[in-house]
Simulated scan of single mutants.
Amino acid sequence: MTIFDISLLAMAAFFAGIVNSIAGGGSFLTFPALVFTGVPTIAANATSAVAVFPGYLSGALGFLKELRDFPLRQWLVLLGLSLLGGVLGALLLLITPASVFAAVVPWLLGFATLIFALGYRVSAWAERNIKAEGFTGNFATLLVCIYGGYFNGGLGIVLLALFSALGMRDINLMNGLKNGMSFVLSGASVVTFALAGIVVWPQALLMMVAATIGGYCGAIVARRLSAGVVRAIVVCIGLAMTVVFAAKTL
């Protein structure tokens, strides 16, 4: 890595930690930064997942009270589906040819950006129109977790929409479940990526440290900058990256 690469990756991860702690969407910064510094797209996706992985645990611990009141059996089912979905999504990524993944990336980024931009509206629509219960709810949860293991972008908003469809209304509980499930499925995918040898560890370790620092600073920034402003910035970045990656496929 050059000094420029180190600086770019550290800065991207730092700001990813900040936006993840305020509004989510840090993958829109870490993934493109890795690709820009020469990391192949599949390895960049895996390394990006490693970079933002630790922040999910602290996020879940922040809602520990709500999680303790959640029925243990349902919690274990959700965690089990997260574990399975994370592994399946990671394995799906591993068997995807690099050329195919490169072609799919703009669509994934565009979808994630759209979901992120319409976050609350998506959740409200799911609450009004979808009633996912029993097997249907578990199957939908598994599909979302597979998506998260394959491509992490926009996962938090998709999970919140899913919880609305499952009939949940407590936003603090939903955020706690979102962070806990994201931690488990990301952990499963990270282990899978590591065993497959596609994680670029020097970059991953650098970005993990920077993202952790950014996550801490995010709490300070949150008091001075509205989540709406941060969300607007993330959406603009997501749209720009979608256009850039789409142009590369032409």
Rank of each mutant, 00 (worst) to 15 (best):
F4C: 05
A16I: 03
V19W: 05
A23G: 09
G25L: 08
F28R: 00
P32V: 08
P32D: 07
P32K: 01
A33Q: 03
L34G: 09
F36A: 09
T37P: 01
T37N: 01
V39I: 14
P40V: 04
I42L: 11
A44H: 06
A46R: 00
V50N: 11
V50E: 00
A51H: 07
V52R: 07
Y56M: 02
L57Y: 00
S58K: 04
G59Q: 02
A60K: 09
G62F: 05
G62I: 10
F63G: 02
E66M: 11
F70A: 12
P71N: 09
W75F: 14
V77A: 12
L83Y: 07
L83N: 03
G85V: 04
G85L: 09
G86W: 06
V87H: 01
L88G: 05
L92K: 04
I95E: 03
F101W: 03
A102H: 08
A102W: 04
A103K: 07
A103G: 13
V105A: 08
L108E: 07
L108N: 08
L109E: 04
A112C: 10
T113G: 08
T113C: 12
L114T: 13
I115V: 15
S123C: 06
A126P: 00
R128G: 06
R128Q: 14
N129K: 11
A132C: 10
F135P: 00
T136F: 15
A140E: 12
L142W: 14
V144E: 01
V144A: 09
V144D: 02
I146V: 12
Y147V: 02
F151V: 12
N152Y: 05
L155D: 05
V158E: 07
V158Q: 00
L160Y: 00
S164C: 10
G167N: 10
R169C: 05
N172G: 04
N172L: 14
M174P: 02
G176S: 05
L177D: 12
K178V: 13
N179E: 14
G180W: 02
V184E: 11
V184R: 09
S186K: 04
A188V: 11
A188L: 02
I198D: 06
W201R: 11
Q203F: 15
A211I: 11
A211Y: 01
T212D: 03
T212A: 13
G214W: 11
G214V: 06
A219S: 15
I220F: 15
A222D: 06
R223W: 08
L225T: 08
L225E: 06
V234W: 00
V235H: 12
V235F: 04
M241H: 04
F245M: 04
A246S: 15
T249A: 14
T249M: 10
